[in-house]
Design a protein around this nucleic acid. Sequence first.
DNA 1: ATCCTGATTTTTTTT
DNA 2: AAATCAGGAT
Length: 810
Amino acid sequence: MSERVERVAALEEGPPGGPEEDAAGERLQALLAGLNEPQREAVTHGEGPLLILAGAGSGKTRVLTHRIAFLIYTGQAQAGEILAITFTNKAAQEMRERVEGLLGRATRGMWLMTFHAACARILRGEAQRLGYTRQFTIYDQADSRRLVRRCIEQLGVDPKRFTPAALNGQISAAKNRLQSAEDYRREVGSPFEELVADVYELYERELMAMNAMDFDDLLFRTVNLLELYEEARRRYGQTFRHVLVDEYQDTNHAQYRLLQLLVGGGTAPARGQRVQLEGHRNLAVVGDDSQSIYGFRGADVRNILDFQQDFPDARVVKLEQNYRSTQTILSAANAVIANNRGGIAKRLWSDLGQGAPVHVRELEDEHAEARFVVGEIERLLDEGTGRAEIAVLYRTNAMSRVIEDALVRREIAYQVIGGTKFYERAEIKDAIAYLSWIANPFDVVSFTRIANSPRRGLGQTSLGRIVGHSATVGVSVWEAAAQAQAIPGLGAAAVKSLRRFSQTMAELAELAARGTPVAELLEAVLARSGYLEALEAEAMGGAAKTIEAQGRIENLEQLVEVAREFDVTHGEGRGAERGMGADDGGESAGEGEGTLDLFLQQLALVADADARRDEEGLVTLMTLHNAKGLEYPVVLIAGCEDGVFPHSRALEEGGLEEERRLFYVGVTRAMRELYLTYARRRMVFGAPSYGLRSRFLDEIPAELSDCEEELTISRLAGEGSQNGVPARVRARARGHRENEWSRAGQASARAANELPPERVFRMGEDVVHAAFGDGVVTGVEPGGVIVVRFAGDGSERKLMAEYAPVSRRR
DNA sequence: ATCCTGATTTTTTTT
DNA sequence: AAATCAGGAT
């Protein structure tokens, strides 16, 4: 490897030599041309750990792609020796295209994908070692929540008291901490955690029996695999000679551990790990602690903050020149983020000039806000701005509807990212469930989903008997279903119906085993199962449902189209499984088996962001989270009100700083023009709510925005002190229309920030009340109100957390 | 088993 | 305002 380094050095010097070396030298110069000094340093860094602190818009994608190209180009790595992790599949795909553009050839064999996709791929080859087959099913969040619900019911716990969502969240958090059910059990400290442990254990057993994994398992099991098998660890560690990770600030503990296992090194292993880590330590991470916005799903900023402790010899490169935004936008972003404590100091600057002021507007209600946003978009379009250059961002998906309505009314073409997702629609999930059950006969969740869809007269009771029978006899649901008459307690009609269903499925499985292309198989499924027929019957029927059914049919046609595309790229037998030699061993006989599995796994891992389309003349609507990593000449952020953004629930849970980072992310998406709007009145849950303008708006220096009233009051309050007290004074001055509601809003903000911790209650906590006795918190409402259900008489009461005589029970 | 209706809940954010 | 759920009627 030292000769490699020499070669790099030689190339950098632009050595004398034969004609092809000259050409190579030129190529290399071209690769490095146009990079600023720190960018170049990051790109040309050789072996060993590398931390790239990349401020918003500082060209980190450029650095990553150029670095990959550089590594390949200088012979430091083959394409197949690179593992590059991105946040979305879309980002991976874009990055691959750019690398190929730089190299002028295909990047066959390079692992350029998300953590989850990489893990799924590894596990497909190694699943047997962990007791799974390679056809294991991946459950999305909805699936796993359903399973949790079943577990809760099986344990005889009231799902009212503890919602599947809450328990699922606990389990997911544990998995992200790499805490197994047994680990969790060992550390329980409350009755609630006791319950979580029970559910967690059962949930794991069920998943295992169904040959299924949830999202978190993909990471967790891969870590298990690498910890358990030194051979696998070595093999993957050596295969991926260079590992690059984008958006490192949003990695969770499992992902962190995975990286350590792959590249070796880091500090002493976390939580008593026994594995001796060794490896090449060629890990390059890119991120920005100011843009860490996924704490709620287990991301841990400390991963990036502590990188230099993990790798004391790491080279650190800071990218501080912003190539995206005007100085005004940057100054606004910097001023807001300065209100967070800690973090890595950086000073972002731009030479793109001051540009326009930030446009801040107050509107009457959300409809007026939507009209303003759309009106402004129309004006910009008239001025020659392209639709694809405009993005509208908001805090929650629910907020898109009003804006969509306004856009439709003005006939402006748009796309919504996220929200009601294509792959979460019932008909799509049904169709996929059919395929899943064919691929994985143990997949009970899929079976129960499709058995009575379309209606076959197999209701809850019958399904329960079938599943119960399969569990007692110890065979897959598939086999159980095939032996309909052997299932005790099943009525004659049910037996007959199940027989027919099972027969159809057997035929379809036969088709699949013969290596039928996925699109063809899917069409056969939809036709023979009677699914399409039922929908068509509904679409023909005269009622209002017609349109809906028609839409569903169209969605299914789209899915078939997706499958057809998959067949084209992965068709012709083998082509699919390229990449490292390591997983070839696991590939079973070559009858085209495995294609269906691959298709299903790809589907399971598609994200909303992957659906984004560029350059098609569409205005883009999405949540601030989905906007991560993107940029638009014009950005409009709607709903800048306290309680909406920052979100009230984040305030309650002490997540203000993460909200502020989210705001920072939103602001820094804008290149030229930035609009921040808020409404005095907004319908929430069908009831009006009145909020104050977002505190983040007050953190923007007045001279950067164009709100005139703002300037006047700010001058009155004292020149130059935009932060701190005067800012709040301004907010009060503007919000003097406040009534009951806004005061309630303030109280809730206070609840999080100023109440002592023993006065802050969360869902599911056990409490005791001086008069009513023991109870459990079943709701947390704005205004510092908590809802408690009391064990004594089963009644539910609303209490003021601040004043009521309640305390935590232990 | 299925359908209808009224009640309850939902809104953070997502791989 | 919309979606999901529970309970009861058919």
